[in-house]
Amino acid sequence: MQKFLAKRAVSSAISLIFLIIAVFFLSRLTGDPTDLYLPVDASQAARDQFREIHGLNDPLIVQFGRYVWDLVHLNFGESIRRAEPALPVVLQAFGWTFRLALITMAIVTVAAITLGALAAFRVGGIFDRIATFFSLIGASAPDFWIAIVAIVVFAVGLGWVPTSGVGGPQYWILPVAVLFIRPFGLILQVVRGSMINALGSAYVKTARAKGVAPKKTIFVHALRNAMLPVITVMGDQAAALLNGAVVVETIFGFPGVGKLMIDSILNRDFTVVLAAIMVTALAIFIMNILIDFAYAILDPRIRY
């Protein structure tokens, strides 16, 4: 198992390194970094000063070394707009996104697995129809449109929940509900397919021949096997939530990392953009390792 985890960790780490290289060179090769880092209306003197301070006149490789060195020390520089270190700003926003993703994923996991297992047990039954409906909606609906329609209906029209911002539980309802749809539909689909396979498998036949009750057959014999492909998709979806809540956060005025990123882009605050990407990538890196760990726990064929 150590070998498996080590291999996966190394491959994730390689990806992370590629990301760092790519971001650095993209930001250097697409033009003068001062254009990226400084506001559009910065004076020529400020630009020269910026170049001097950040050593932009040094050879590219020296710049890259310094950039990596700074990254290792978690030094992302200062947010130009806010005039404070970028990292705390990003971390605070990331905390919000993380909570949002965690709550959503928790609800999605429980709902998708239960409903998916029940749908697979009676193909064509009522649960199966619900599952098909949601997976279609999840794959077809643009979340920004759902979000604004939800605001019009539930916040403006009915006045049940606030339109945007943060605060008590009522502020979380709409963002979570909108974010819920896509991963729920996708994971439901995978759980269902995987459960149908598992329920049709030979070992479930054995369990039935042993006299195991249906409930135990589904949730003990089939589900654990069926979870293996599900975990992979759950990882992908969780990653998508960590980085892709951009739209929903923007619409609901939720102070997460996605909104921070868009705001920073519109304000040309590149240090913050960069820090946000790094923090998100690191979080996904850690999550991938956890996913692999879960995989190894569930499947003894990986452990031995």
Binding site: S201, A202, Y203, T206, A209, V212, R224, N225, D299, P300
Partner: peptide
């Protein structure tokens, strides 16, 4: 179900597929 496994038991071809891979 009370008879299956207790009074009448069954074994199959391809035992690898018929044993659950994730339990001892």
């Amino acid at each position: 179900r009370a008879i299956n496994g207790k009074k009448i038991a069954m074994i199959f071809q391809d035992p690898l597929a018929h044993l659950n891979p994730v339990y001892t």
